[in-house]
Structure formats: structure tokens, C-alpha cells
């Protein structure tokens, strides 16, 4: 009996310790299984001319696995692609982009951006543009992005 009780106590203690142990580690290695994505800060620039414009957003991944942004679609334009502005000032189409575990993918001026070419309409400040983001693992996320003036900076008010 004593041994069983001792064994049980040891088991409980071990379990308790394990529980404490993982709590002590904090949330670094925890978090939902797989990627867990949220999109914030989305906006589309009001362009000077009706032929093309750029869009931006931040994807935050609180999950423990990475994911990949594979495409962005929108009814705003014929062609919607993600481009990057390189240090030499040229732009190229960016392939699928990683959204790291416990990390972010940031699209911003001077870096990655969504390029809309062949606009069906010229977006105006105050309007909304709908974008659907598709991923390798996660379900698609649809974002309603406000149209902002060309000089807008996230965090500006």
C-alpha cells in the first residue's frame, strides 16, 4: 500500500512538476498547434492615376508552426501580386512568403507590397478594398482594407 501510495504521490508530483515546468517556460513553446494567423494594419494606397496601386498589411503568427502566404486576390484589379522593392530601387515579384512561427510578415512601403495592376476602378480615400490572402496551411483570410492617401503611414492619425 505504502509503495502504491508513494508511486501515486511520485506520479502526481511528476505531473505537477511537469505542469509547473511548462508554465515556467512561459508561452514561448506553447501556443496553438500549427500556424495561427491574424491580419492587421491593412490598407490600400489611393493612387495618382487609375492604372495601378499598392496595398499593405501585417500578418502575425502566434502559432508554433510557420505558414506561407501563397497568393493575394482582389476584385480591385486584373492582376494582383506581391512585389518587393529591392535596395537598388527596382521591384520584383516576390514568391511565396514565409510567415514564421511566433513571428510576422510585414508588408510596408519600401519593402514587400501588394501590387494591383489593371484597376477596375480607381480607389479613393475612405473606400474599402477587399483582399483575400491564401496560405499553404491556414484557411484563407479575407481583409477589408481602407483606402488611405498616398502619404499615409501606419500609426499616423
Amino acid at each position: 500500500m505504502k509503495r502504491a501510495a508513494a508511486a501515486l504521490a511520485a506520479l502526481l508530483l511528476a505531473t505537477g512538476t511537469a505542469a509547473c515546468g511548462s508554465n515556467d517556460k512561459g508561452s514561448e513553446d506553447k501556443g496553438p498547434d500549427g500556424p495561427h494567423l491574424a491580419v492587421s494594419g491593412a490598407y490600400v494606397k489611393e493612387p495618382p492615376m487609375p492604372d495601378m496601386t499598392a496595398g499593405y498589411f501585417t500578418i502575425t503568427n502566434t502559432g508554433r508552426d510557420a505558414d506561407t502566404l501563397t497568393s493575394v486576390t482582389s476584385d480591385l484589379a486584373k492582376h494582383v501580386t506581391v512585389h518587393t522593392t529591392k535596395p537598388d530601387g527596382s521591384m520584383t515579384e516576390a514568391g511565396p512568403l514565409a510567415v514564421p512561427a511566433h513571428g510576422r510578415l510585414v508588408l510596408r512601403m519600401g519593402g514587400y507590397h501588394v501590387m494591383f495592376i489593371g484597376l477596375h476602378r480607381k480607389p479613393k480615400t475612405g473606400e474599402t478594398v477587399t483582399m483575400t490572402l491564401r496560405f499553404a496551411t491556414s484557411a484563407p483570410i479575407t481583409v477589408n482594407a481602407p483606402v488611405q492617401p498616398a502619404g499615409y503611414r501606419p500609426g499616423d492619425r
Partner: peptide
């Protein structure tokens, strides 16, 4: 300055930098 600009203004696409949300 031409080649360093991207990093100087925070425009380098970096998915896991802690300051990724700071406006450039």
C-alpha cells in the same frame, strides 16, 4: 547610401524582427 537605404529606413522585408511594426 543608395544600397544601405533599405535597412536604414527599415524597409528590409524581415519577417521576424521585433521592430517590424515600427513605421519606417
Amino acid at each position: 547610401a543608395v544600397s544601405l537605404t533599405a535597412s536604414a529606413c527599415g524597409g528590409t522585408p524581415s519577417a521576424s524582427r521585433p521592430d517590424a511594426a515600427t513605421p519606417p
